[in-house]
């Protein structure tokens, strides 16, 4: 019974993903018919402008959106499972804050850093933020409990955010930082996809192996240990996986909150509490959300673009409010 529900939902979301990707490729500042999109995909003609736009601008962008949406959503699902905190996402690991801090530093001291280097640097920042929180959480007497991880995470994030804005104000580059922070997929080219894709896909392949253990851990660490699960190891692996996923995504598109928070909730509503099902479904749904959000960001006021994090929040917030109201004290 559960299996059929999952397969139906999963197939429907995959279909939705494909459809939204086609839509996102064909709509934009210049409208291109769906049939042209199709011919570009199977028979690329470099002399045609429409084909060029699709191949050079839209395709990498849409593929990037899908990948990053999936990465954010899975990172969020894993964090919610491991910390048993329905409000967790990769943000509590200091990913966004670490990346923002390092980007602020590099804006201040190396203002001419090219985009690709900025990506590398912000990824390192994201990882460092997490390592810091993790070490801090586990060096305490009681060890690394989910609560402690959450608290340490939110405090470190607050600290790094406010240091970033301090740096930005002192060096008078607040708005530059805000633009980076607001995010956007406009900068994604094939060149970036070339290393984004393998990293994200390889990491995503790991996650189904974690599903069973995390479902058990959601019942509490004692139960999980009794079932023969090495909870410490699962926790560490899940954190590493989500940091890589979220770190790569943040470095590519800036800080997009909410995807990692909302999507796992939606997935849980649809298929229940089994993380073997939640994780893959989150991946596809996250991809749909970000592809559509990016399309929306481009379509609201073409040729100008809206910040994608604003777009995601516009969709995510009302939905989350609805969720919070429906859930009758079950949190």
């Amino acid at each position: 019974m559960k299996g059929t529900v999952f397969s139906t939902v999963f197939l429907l979301t995959v279909a939705a993903l494909l459809m939204s990707m086609f839509l996102a490729i064909s709509y934009g500042a210049k409208e291109i018919t769906l049939s042209t999109v199709w011919t570009t995909l199977i028979n690329y003609d470099p002399s045609d402008t429409s084909h060029q736009i699709i191949h050079e601008l839209r395709l990498p962008r849409v593929l990037g959106a899908a990948l990053i949406g999936a990465a954010f959503a899975v990172a969020g699902a894993l964090m919610q499972g491991v910390t048993r905190n329905p409000l967790a996402d990769a943000g509590i690991l200091g990913v966004n804050a670490g990346a923002t801090f390092v980007v602020a530093l590099s804006f201040a001291f190396f203002p001419n850093l090219p985009y690709s280097w900025l990506m590398v640097v912000s990824f390192l920042g994201a990882v460092m933020g997490t390592v810091f929180i993790f070490l801090l959480g586990s060096s305490t007497p009681g060890g690394l409990t989910p609560l402690r991880l959450t608290v340490a995470g939110s405090v470190v994030a607050a600290l790094l955010h406010s240091l970033s804005s301090g740096i930005a104000i002192y060096f008078e580059l607040s708005q530059d930082l805000a633009f980076w922070y607001a995010g956007g997929l406009a900068g994604i080219k094939w060149m970036h996809l070339k290393w984004l894709t393998p990293v994200v896909l390889l990491t995503l392949l790991w996650t189904p192996l974690l599903g069973r253990s995390i479902s058990a851990m959601a019942l509490g660490n004692d139960v999980a240990s009794n079932l023969g699960i090495k909870t410490k190891r699962v926790q560490v692996i899940a954190i590493i996986v989500s940091v890589i996923l979220a770190g790569v995504s943040v470095s590519a598109v800036g800080s997009i909150g909410f995807v990692g928070l909302v999507i796992p909730h939606m997935a849980r509503k649809l298929v229940g509490v089994d993380y073997r099902l939640i994780v893959p479904l989150s991946a596809v749904m996250g991809a749909v959300l970000l592809v559509l959000a990016d399309l929306g960001a481009r379509m609201v006021n073409p040729p100008k673009e809206l910040a994608i994090s604003v777009m995601v929040a516009m969709v995510g917030v009302p939905f989350f409010l609805y969720l919070a109201r429906r859930e009758r004290g079950s949190y």
């Binding site: 409000l87 930005a168 805000a178 909410f258 604003v310 995601v312 929040a313 516009m314 989350f320 409010l321």
Partner: peptide, 29 residues
Amino acid sequence: VGIALAAGFSAITLFLSLRLDEGTYAFAA
């Protein structure tokens, strides 16, 4: 609800503040 509304209002704030000129934005920041 507080977290969700904070995220929503921050998004609108971000949207509006990206349209400000640099001097005004510096004050807001």
